[in-house]
Design a protein around this nucleic acid. Structure first.
Length: 350
DNA sequence: GAATCGTGGCA
DNA sequence: TTGCCAAGATT
């Protein structure tokens, strides 16, 4: 048996039963692939169910507002995926009459669809012979063929793509692709793989050279940057204030409370004394501190955010024009209608 | 082409 | 506690 046959045989025995498994509708395939980018199955599962339930077809998604799409995406992370998903749904409806493209050259131009996702849609939905190379495939191939260079280097990626293409079963690209990905996810796992019971053991270069744990190699990682946030949960009557993040930064197009960001981790006193604070709240007499939280640490891939939440109450006659021009004034109960970062969602729970 | 974009689970 | 990294794409 060749490697594809071994993987397929293994797959038929060990495959998980997943909501998108066996689906051929390219729209559903697309939704599942975007949700699962850099995301574990267990984390994406419920989001997939929510999405296809609320947006059963491409026009339902295209006709929704971006805010609603982001709200459904809230908590899943990498929010550009949701923005691109929505943008591309509108594009397909407008320019392709709602018909999902089935050519690589067309798919690859759509926002949010890269080489992997295009190949996944083409093979799963249209049975076309394109090899998928995701993190799982990367690991299986680099170990089996003994690729010791860092797999995140462009030249090494090309090399692995060619290897993936060479072993592809062109007659059953859908089964082959799902088999090799599932194999990476369940058998050829990153840490402590069970090589003693692996059907690819005899041909695996990494196993024969006893370097399975060293492959796939990765480039050294950049140090994470520390950031210091000070959020103001402002209460005035039964209302509060939020704004939409529109900068090219984390959490783009999500909502948040009035925010001061500082270079260092300033104390409460230092915040209250700062010019930036006085710009937000010029009249301290109309201002009551209800609660100040501990410093909450929120870890992102390249950043660690240290945040303190200030719960404050404004008297009725506080009417700073700056505030009302820059923030949306909403009822407390309305907060759940807006997509917010997990950091704020967690705070609001308590 | 390197840097950037979230969150959660696990060892 | 910390690091790893997961059905990657964009700029």
């Amino acid at each position: 048996m060749n490697i594809s046959e071994i993987l397929t045989e293994w797959y038929e025995i060990h495959k998980r039963n997943l909501p998108w498994r066996g689906i051929e509708n390219p729209y559903f395939i697309w939704i599942s692939e975007i949700i699962l980018q850099q995301t574990r199955v267990s984390q994406g599962w419920n989001y997939y169910e929510k999405f296809i339930s609320r947006f059963p077809d491409i026009s339902a998604l295209a006709n929704a507002s971006e805010d609603e799409v982001l709200l459904l995406w809230q908590g899943l992370g990498y929010y550009s995926r949701a923005r691109n998903l929505h943008h591309t749904a509108k594009h397909i409806l407008k320019y392709f009459n709602g018909i999902f493209p089935n050519r690589y050259e067309t798919l690859i131009k759509l926002k949010g669809i890269g080489e992997y996702t295009a190949a996944a849609i083409l093979s799963f939905a249209f049975k076309k012979p394109f090899p998928v190379v995701d993190g799982n495939v990367n690991r299986v191939i680099s170990r089996f063929f003994g690729v010791t260079e860092p797999v995140d280097l462009p030249d090494v990626r090309k090399k692995i793509y060619i290897l993936a293409k060479n072993i592809l079963n062109e007659k059953k690209p859908d089964i082959h692709n799902q088999a090799i990905m599932e194999f990476g996810a369940l058998q050829c796992v990153p840490q402590n793989p069970d090589c003693a019971n692996c059907p690819l053991q005899s041909g695996c270069v990494a196993f024969s050279k006893n370097c399975v744990e060293k492959i796939p190699a990765k480039k050294p990682k950049k140090e994470v940057e520390n950031r210091y946030f000070h959020y103001f949960f402002v209460k005035q009557n039964e209302k509060t204030f939020i704004r939409k993040r529109q900068e090219s930064d984390i959490w783009r197009n999500l909502y948040e409370f009035p925010l001061l960001e500082t270079e260092k981790n300033l104390s409460e006193t230092e915040i209250f004394d700062s010019q930036e604070f006085k710009k937000l709240f010029p009249d301290f007499s109309k201002f009551t501190i209800l609660n100040i939280s501990q410093i909450i640490e929120h870890q992102l891939t390249h950043q660690k955010i240290f945040t303190r939440f200030y719960e404050i109450s404004l008297s009725q006659n506080f009417a700073n024009s700056y505030f009302f021009e820059n923030f949306k004034n909403i009822d407390f109960a309305e907060i759940s209608d807006f997509a917010v970062p997990k950091l704020i969602e967690n705070y609001l729970k308590n």
